[in-house]
Design a protein around this nucleic acid. Structure first.
Length: 561
RNA sequence: AGGGGUGUAGCCAAGCGGUAAGGCACUAGACUUUGACUCUAGCAUGCGUAGGUUCAAAUCCUGCCACCCCUGCCA
């Protein structure tokens, strides 16, 4: 990308401002970012923000992004996750230039650099136990004390480090530490551990290693080796930046344009639980259907629910990127879910709570009507439905004692059936309990949708299905997993509330609905708007006999009773 | 004797010395064969707070206050 192109770019946030400056003043000639997940769990909506920033920042300035597994801890990681990430990224519309496993690509070089640090007098093998390391680290307000091993000869440290690598020590017995400053006000600089002994099989490197580098050491080296220019991360690493820079300076003293770490703040969503260990607990205890439960805000969960990648992306682009902590109402996200689905979802009719209606003046076979697949999209076409003598409407669309401004069906009143005719209710037939059993209505043949020349006007339009053109489907509706009183689940958990207490019971409601036959052609993952109700997505649990639709989100309802 | 951050409307968030963008939410109203969508209007004499500099301050300076993060051989 040439200078003029760069000058023309409007930064959308402070990170892009910095990147633009760095490009314009010649610090870097291109932008290379990295998406560095630790392969240890399912991604959720929070990760999406981070990854989208990585990819979007590079894309905007003509650069590229690598997917790099930050797999330096064999006890936590699993190759199966690594593989799922590529699919998740593709879903988000992010395409990494390279896929790199840090373990495989960089462990040798890291080891080499650790030896160099030792020989430069910048690192030493420490024989303090984990407890003693913690004890001598000092506190937030007081300096730490030097390890007794701090000043041992470099040759001795080197020999011991090689012994570490050779497997001559047990887990936890010794560590390699950077020699920085035990009195630093920044605790990260107090001789951090950079290698630990871990006799564990790594999913990628197997048993080749029994020592593993720590994040603070590994990450800057990975970035430097890979030619990363901007290493964008969460604000919790702000304190680590001096360390990040220290490792690059000391490992690559001649590097001209070292990578730069920039931090931004993640966000919280009201009532949304994201913590891996808590979700795991819910999965293991059978509280939910799995990691892809539609009530989870994991990527797999959102996909199963019917939330689109564009909705997630638009949301992220809109909430902004800053360094201030934020907690967003769910409605801020849901707006984008509806907005995107409104453009894409095929319209259909389904009656969730059926009330039988007999059209007394309609005799003979049902007739065909047409339903627009999407009124917002001229190219979406239409599909066929039917109208006939026996139809079903929503129970809530009829009232014996209508509240004010009720413009649905009442006794003696008229209403339009979507895509069909205007009908008038002549009689509500009650059952022995006094409840409405069914309705007797008449229709007006000259009011057919599309060729109505009757001049009749009615205030309301309701959806319906015709008996022979409908079939029973299963609808799954979801309530928020977290109880109403816990606006910020992570805080509640931190203050001692248990997961059991946090989680609402009965957040999954399964019910039957009558859907038009058109839905029989649906495939798993297809998204629909059941008119006047909400958006639904066909679930993978569907069978030939039982179609299951997940409620993605309801339509907005501004009717005030 | 710690260090690092952040404070602009109910919630996000622009703003970069020249007199408070935008979005969500909410409230009215218009339109409507989805009470959806769309459209129109309203919504901070105020920018954590107290001073100071200036013709002019959310923007610069000083003090104070509040909240968040940091004492893993996790990332």
């Amino acid at each position: 990308m040439n200078r003029e192109d760069i000058e023309r770019i409007e930064p959308a946030n402070f990170i892009e401002e910095e990147v633009k400056k760095d490009l314009l003043n010649g610090t870097y000639n291109e932008v290379v970012t990295r998406c560095p997940p630790e392969p240890s769990g399912y991604w959720h909506i929070g990760h999406c923000k981070a990854w989208l920033i990585d990819f979007e920042t590079a894309r905007k300035f003509g650069g590229y992004t690598n997917l790099r597994m930050d797999d330096t801890n064999p006890t936590k990681e699993d190759g199966n996750f690594a593989e799922s990430y590529l699919a998740d990224l593709e879903w988000l519309g992010c395409f990494p230039k390279k896929v790199i496993y840090a373990s495989e690509a960089y462990f040798d070089k890291m080891y080499e650099l650790a030896e160099k640090l030792i020989m430069d007098g910048k690192a030493y093998v420490c024989e303090l136990s984990a407890e003693d390391v913690a004890r001598t680290r000092g506190t937030l307000t007081s300096a730490g004390e030097n390890s007794p091993y701090r000043d041992r000869p470099a040759e001795e440290s080197l020999r011991l480090f090689r012994d570490m690598k050779a497997g001559k020590f047990k887990d936890g017995e010794v560590t390699l530490r950077a020699k920085i400053d035990m009195a630093s006000p920044n605790i990260n600089m107090r001789d951090p551990v950079i290698y630990r002994v871990l006799h564990a099989t790594h999913y990628k490197t197997g048993d080749k290693w029994c020592i593993y580098p720590m994040y603070d050491f590994a990450h800057p080296i990975e970035d430097a080796l890979e030619g990363i220019t901007h290493s964008i991360c969460d604000i919790s690493f702000e304190d680590h930046r001096p360390l990040y820079n220290w490792f690059i300076q000391n490992c690559f003293p001649d590097m001209k344009n070292p990578p730069r770490q920039i931090e931004f703040a993640l966000f919280n969503l009201e009532y949304v639980l994201l913590g891996k260990r808590y979700l795991k607990q819910l999965v293991n205890n059978g509280v939910v259907m799995g990691w892809d439960d539609p009530r989870f805000y994991t990527i797999v969960g959102m996909r199963r629910r019917g939330i689109t990648a564009d909705a997630v992306k638009n949301f992220m682009l809109n909430i902004g990127i800053t360094k201030s902590v934020s907690i967003l109402p769910l409605s801020a996200f849901e707006y984008y879910v509806r907005d995107d689905l409104n453009k894409k979802a095929t319209r259909a009719m389904a009656v969730l709570d059926p009330l039988k209606v007999i059209i007394t003046n309609y005799n003979g076979e049902p007739e065909e009507i047409e339903i627009e697949n999407n009124p917002n999209d001229e190219n979406a076409g239409k599909h066929k439905a039917k109208f006939g003598r026996e139809i079903y409407i929503e129970k809530e669309d009829f009232s014996l004692a209508p509240p004010p401004k009720y413009n649905r069906l009442v006794e003696g009143g008229i209403v339009r059936l979507k895509g069909a005719y205007i009908i008038k209710c002549n009689k509500a037939v009650l059952d022995k309990n006094g409840e409405v059993d069914y309705l007797e209505c008449e229709y007006f043949p000259d009011t057919k949708s599309g060729c109505d020349n009757s001049g009749m006007k009615c205030k309301g339009t309701i959806h319906f299905v015709e008996k022979s053109n409908s079939f029973e489907v299963t609808i799954r509706e979801f309530k928020n997993l977290v109880k109403q009183e816990y606006l910020e689940p992570s805080k509640a958990l931190a203050s001692g509330v248990s997961v059991e207490e946090l989680i609402d019971s009965d957040t999954l409601v399964e019910r039957k609905a009558l859907a038009e036959n058109f839905l029989k052609t649906a495939q798993v993952g297809d998204k629909f708007q059941f008119m006047r109700k909400g958006f639904y997505c066909m679930d993978k649990d569907s069978t030939e006999e039982n179609f299951v639709f997940n409620s993605t989100i309801s339509l907005k309802d501004t009717y005030k009773k």
